[in-house]
């Protein structure tokens, strides 16, 4: 059924437009403004053209941060999406246990991000943390402060702990919307468990999976607080992701021009990759 054309609907969108213009467009224009200017201080600015963009695009440090960021997001998606689907398939369907499991699973999602960082920072410490202490007792040489590999492992396990539930809850909602008749038909056809998953459950979840993949990609690509609290970007630069680098530049060193150019490129990279995910996944869904 086609929606009627009605341009007066713009009046309904107007409040959103004004609000978002205030909280997104004006700040973004400030960033654009900084990105093409240089300053000697005293609020004296002069035109610098694309100089900052060139500097950022040629910076080895930012290339390295981008590489780490891409690797991190890839690992996160590769772990959390399949694990989330698997958990959703195993969740109780109804009754008291379903409510309890839902509430417990949603718990990590509602913990402020720096507290998430604090929890894992403490949990992983060899002297006072359960995880660090247990690993040390088992003879594993684990130290996330000095060893880059351990720092990465800690941050990845932390993110899996933090966000897998979101993927699982979304998939669970998708599964709940499948009518029982589908399963009965599958049983009559003597479909295997894999067949049920591949031809009934997965297609029915594709809508929520798209949202899950996009949300997890965007948020893992913007991650700041949790690794900042746990490792502070170290050891060395091993866990300095794009946002940590950017905040260091913009607020730590007040390099406004390069930071602004960096911001715009960062934003464009996220938009581009999200658009690719969106296009590829909706194209697959629309296939017969």
């Amino acid at each position: 059924m086609d929606k009627p054309v009605n341009n007066r609907a713009w009046f309904l969108v107007l409040p959103v437009l004004v609000l978002v213009a205030f909280s997104a467009v004006i700040p973004l224009m400030t960033v654009v403004n900084y990105s093409v200017q240089d300053t000697f201080g005293n609020n004296q600015f002069f035109w610098n053209g694309l100089g900052w963009f060139q500097e950022v695009l040629e910076s080895d440090r930012i290339h390295a941060a981008l590489g780490r960021q891409l690797l991190f997001s890839a690992i996160i998606l590769a772990i959390e999406i399949p694990l989330g689907i698997f958990i959703a398939l195993n969740m109780p369907k109804r009754g008291f246990w379903a409510s309890l499991v839902l509430v417990l699973m949603a718990l990590p999602l509602l913990i402020p991000w720096n507290v998430v960082g604090t929890i894992w920072q403490v949990f992983g410490r060899v002297d006072i943390g359960l995880l660090g202490h247990t690993l040390a007792a088992l003879g594993v040489d684990y130290n996330y402060v000095n060893d880059p590999l351990d720092a990465w492992a800690t941050i990845i396990v932390m993110d899996v702990w933090h966000w897998t539930s979101l993927v699982a809850l979304l998939c669970y909602a998708g599964l709940q919307s499948i009518p029982d008749a589908y399963y009965q038909a599958a049983r009559i056809d003597q479909a295997s468990r894999w067949g049920v998953f591949r031809f009934i459950e997965l297609p029915k979840m594709s809508g929520v999976l798209l949202i899950a993949v996009l949300l997890r990609f965007m948020d893992s690509f913007m991650i700041y607080t949790e690794p900042f609290v746990v490792t502070g970007g170290g050891p060395g630069n091993a866990t300095t992701f794009l946002s940590i680098d950017l905040v260091k530049m913009a607020i730590g060193q007040f390099d406004l021009g390069p930071a602004a150019a960096f911001s715009l490129i960062y934003f464009l990279v996220i938009l581009l990759i999200s658009w690719v995910f969106y296009t590829v996944m909706t194209a697959q869904r629309d296939l017969p």
């Binding site: 004006i26 946002s243 950017l246 913009a250 607020i251 934003f267």
Partner: peptide
């Protein structure tokens, strides 16, 4: 999709 880090300073 806008990283909060981008918007902090503006």
């Amino acid at each position: 999709m806008a990283p909060p880090a981008v918007f902090a300073l503006p």
